[in-house]
Design a protein around this nucleic acid. Sequence first.
DNA 1: ATCAGAGGTATAGGGCCTCT
DNA 2: AGAGGCCCTATACCTCTGAT
Length: 229
Amino acid sequence: MPSTPDISHVAGLLSDPSRSAMLISLLDGRPQTATELAQRAKITPQTASLHLSKLVSGHLISKEVQGKYHYFRLTDPNVAHAIESLIAISPPSKIYSLREADEDNALRKARTCYDHLAGRLGINLAESIVRKGYIDISNENYRVTDDGKEFFSDFGIDFVKLKRRRRKFIHPCLDWSERTPHIGGALGAALLDRITELGWIDKKASQRAVRVTELGKEGFRNHFELSVD
DNA sequence: ATCAGAGGTATAGGGCCTCT
DNA sequence: AGAGGCCCTATACCTCTGAT
């Protein structure tokens, strides 16, 4: 008889507010030190260090030592996907200041979800791609059409190389702020890489929120018929 | 090459809180 | 009351950098 997966261990690791705050901070895919994560979770570095060691032993995050710095990151996109899904079914956190409200608005507008684009921009981009017939939705799954293959190749994405990767090629990733899926998987990551490379978005070093540049506004309009304010 | 200082992380011990 | 978990402070350890 197949054994039942034990989700209680992972759920236990996620159940602490400090640990979940650090995991959410790691959602942008950027490696961060224990001290940075401690600031995010509003705890001391020593406490953060303890929590991080538990998350490492639970295989939710991995650690890379570079000199005196210890960089932590999510182990793989599946962890990010799981956290985003939990955020989608969680009640919104209370906002106490104008700064928090601004950050929340910026995140809802456009942000990275581990290694792909999310927020209203991510949703609108996915909807535009579907509308143009580059991606087909069947049984709530994404499939790239022949037109899509041609379009993504023209857009500068190496489709063949992407297909060879062991990672899931494309999947709908539920957006916690919009409750609508955006494009996840290897193609979602490649899209974000290409958009960043083209200078369409500006990723701030310490934030998940991204800003669309003037070049990006033009690019999204010309390639995806998207008007970004 | 060696040493001291600074920055960052890990660990130990204790207080506090919650649950049973 | 006891157990368990979280967070804090104090301290030790590691690594890097700059001065000598």
